[in-house]
Simulated assay, not measured.
Amino acid sequence: MDFGTWPELLVVDVEGNGATPPDLVEVAAVRIAGGRPVPTLCTLVRPPRPITSFATRVHRITNHDVADAPRWEQVAPAIQAPLQGAWIAAHNAHVDYTALSRHLPGWEPAGVIDTLRLARATYPDAPGYGLDALLTHTAIPLDGIPGCRHRAGFDAHATALLLLDLAGHYPTWQVLAAAGVPPGMPGAAVPDHEEQTLW
């Protein structure tokens, strides 16, 4: 895989407050540059509604943790800037894409790679397709990643390493994108249908 042919791409991860729809409490993005993950942004966000106890059990972010964090409108421009015009990737990407789209009106990535979809195509015999299962299956070393699982910075970095592992199974960016972009998402190939005429 020639990483020099890749478009601008950031692996993203978001954590929410447990509301429906969720308010964001943490956002991270890791740029893929020259075939390596480069942490680009990671910020806590003070949501307009409290974090539920269920959400805290998942990501361990408490209301106390975000009490002095900036509100979304204060960090949105800095988050949107690197994402503008770029591809994004995420594990189970519709979750992160939907949350970011709702919080960034008018933003649409150039394309969306779903590492969950890509992993199913790449490793059909994997025992599971959750992020933990895939990291175990691929034996990707995680020692150098700061933080812990279920925090946005850690998960974005781990997903970036997973994406790079998966990319090794594809000859070109175009083939990888064809396998990794879910139907209906930005970047999906438009099927060629012959025009049919009713006589």
Rank of each mutant, 00 (worst) to 15 (best):
M1F: 09
E8Q: 14
L10E: 05
L10T: 07
V12T: 04
V14W: 04
V14Y: 03
V14N: 07
V14D: 02
G16S: 03
N17M: 13
G18T: 11
G18Q: 07
G18C: 07
A19H: 06
A19I: 02
A19W: 04
P22S: 14
L24A: 13
E26C: 02
A28D: 12
R31N: 10
R31P: 12
R31T: 13
A33M: 03
G34Q: 12
P37L: 09
T40D: 13
C42M: 08
C42Q: 15
L44G: 02
L44V: 00
R46C: 12
R46N: 13
P47S: 10
T52C: 04
S53W: 13
S53R: 14
S53Q: 14
R60T: 12
I61V: 14
N63A: 14
A69C: 11
P70Y: 05
R71K: 09
R71T: 15
W72K: 14
E73D: 15
E73P: 09
Q74I: 01
A76P: 08
A76F: 04
P77G: 14
A78P: 05
A78M: 12
I79F: 06
Q80M: 08
P82E: 01
L83W: 00
G85L: 05
G85H: 11
I88P: 00
A90L: 06
H91A: 07
N92L: 05
V95Y: 15
Y97K: 03
T98W: 01
T98L: 00
A99L: 06
S101N: 04
S101M: 03
H103V: 03
L104A: 11
P105A: 06
E108Y: 05
E108Q: 15
A110L: 07
D114H: 09
A119C: 03
A121D: 08
A121R: 15
T122A: 09
P124R: 07
A126M: 00
P127M: 06
G130L: 01
G130F: 01
D132Y: 05
H137Q: 12
T138I: 11
I140E: 10
L142V: 09
D143V: 05
G144V: 06
G144I: 05
I145T: 09
G147W: 05
C148P: 02
R149Y: 12
R149V: 04
R149C: 01
F154E: 10
F154M: 06
F154C: 07
D155S: 12
A158W: 02
A158K: 02
L164E: 01
L164S: 02
D165L: 00
D165C: 06
D165H: 15
A167Q: 05
G168R: 14
G168A: 13
Y170A: 03
Y170H: 06
T172M: 05
V175T: 14
L176M: 08
A177L: 01
A177S: 13
A178R: 15
V181I: 15
P186W: 13
P186M: 15
G187T: 09
A188N: 11
A189H: 11
E194M: 09
E195W: 06
W199T: 15
